[in-house]
Computed example of a mutant assay.
Amino acid sequence: MKNETNKIINVAFLGTYLPRECGLATFTHDLAHELGMLGDFSPPRVIAVNNNAVYAYGKDVARSFEQENKSEYARIAYELNRSDIDLLVIQHEFGIYGGECGEYVLELAKRLTIPFIVIFHTVLTAPNPAQLRIVSLLGEWSDRSVTMAQSTVADLHHIYGIPADKIRMHHHGVPRLSAESRDTLKSRYGYAGRQIVSTFGFLSPGKGIEYAIEAMSGVASRHPDALYVVWGKTHPVVKQEVGEVYRRQLADQVDRLGLNEHVRFVDKLLTQEEVVHSLVLSDIYMTPYLGREQAVSGTLAYGVGYGRVIVSTPYRYATEMLGDGRGLLADFRDAKSLETQLLDILDHPDKKLQMERKTAELGRRMMWDQIAKEYAALIRDVVGSSYPVQGSVV
């Protein structure tokens, strides 16, 4: 039998995984690590999806396969059904699985006889037919469907037809790391005496950094100590396709606007500790993204987790997370609007402090050790209510 009372629970994850440079890979790593720290879970195993690249995976990766190898999906389902795995967690994002819109993942899901849950990292309000079919079927076949924003719960039900009693919302987790004070970290990183506005994550045209840079012209004229720090390397896919075109365009823009003393680029893949440091030393965290549909942003979740005041464009996740006075929303593709919101915070230190307190209140509930306990309760519920399945232990 797959599971018995008080038995250690064996979980597997399907998705991308570190050291692949991918936000979803980091998410999988962090959630799997925290689950493995709980007493009734064995260290989760990972089935890693590759994109025609070779990765030096650690011992927690049980196997890996190429995303376009359709036959592998059926084979993995067969192996999982015969293994001692009690439940599979499918991380879903368009683009990481093979076939049209990643439809090959259905070849695996439809063959599973063990329970599985699916975590939807993207929930589109206007999916094309292929996207609609994939999400709908994963939701239909899964034991539970998870989203990371309250606003997308209704979408999964009304657009994709997933039964409401199957849908759960759990916040995007944030790593809990201790850090020195804001001023201490500013000194360590060479930013002493500056008011820091920051953005972190993979650099790509959809991030809208050009509008943030333009906004810094007006900000710097009123606050000469203001500095915008853009942390992160160019997205690997963007770099492979077009090189560093976008980064060079941004650097040229900084030169053209005479903002070399007010904009810095840190061109590297940040460690988890450096990500936390970049947030703690910041006075304002900014996400000037261009796409309204973005249902989840790991970088914004981190900003909330560490109690930063946030200025953002009104994409879906930002609109939800910055409610109740946790941040300010600027118009899309509008440097002047970003400038106005940045100045509102920098001109009013008391308002900034009040917003930080409100954001930190939510952020404390988003630490990975807390979020993992929520997932653990969900998994226990699913495993405990599932019919045992006969199978050989491998």
Rank of each mutant, 00 (worst) to 15 (best):
V229H: 01
S217A: 15
V230K: 01
V219M: 00
Q240D: 13
E244I: 12
P224E: 03
R222P: 04
V242N: 08
V237A: 11
Q240L: 13
P236E: 05
W231K: 06
P224T: 04
L227W: 01
K239Q: 12
W231E: 09
V230A: 09
R248V: 12
H223Q: 02
P224Q: 04
A220F: 00
S217R: 12
V229E: 04
R222Q: 14
E244F: 15
R247T: 11
P224M: 06
V229K: 02
V238Q: 08
S221F: 09
G243K: 03
D225Y: 08
Y246M: 04
R247D: 10
Y246H: 09
R222H: 12
W231G: 07
S221Y: 07
H223K: 00
K233T: 14
W231F: 15
V230T: 04
D225K: 11
V219Y: 00
A226W: 00
P224H: 03
G218A: 05
K239R: 15
R222V: 13
A220M: 01
V238E: 13
A220T: 05
V242G: 06
V230P: 02
H223W: 00
V238I: 14
V238G: 05
S217Y: 06
V219T: 05
D225T: 15
V238R: 04
Q240A: 15
G243T: 07
K239L: 13
R247G: 10
A220I: 04
A226K: 01
H235D: 09
G232N: 07
T234A: 07
S217L: 15
G243Q: 03
R222Y: 08
A220K: 00
L227D: 03
A220Q: 01
V229F: 01
H235V: 09
T234E: 06
S221H: 12
D225N: 14
V245Y: 11
S217K: 12
Y246P: 04
H235C: 08
A226Q: 02
R247Q: 14
G232V: 08
S221A: 15
V229N: 03
R248Y: 12
R248Q: 14
V229D: 02
G218S: 05
G243V: 08
T234D: 07
H223T: 03
H235W: 06
V229W: 01
Q240C: 11
L227P: 03
K239E: 12
P236I: 08
G243H: 02
L227R: 02
V238A: 08
R222I: 10
V230F: 02
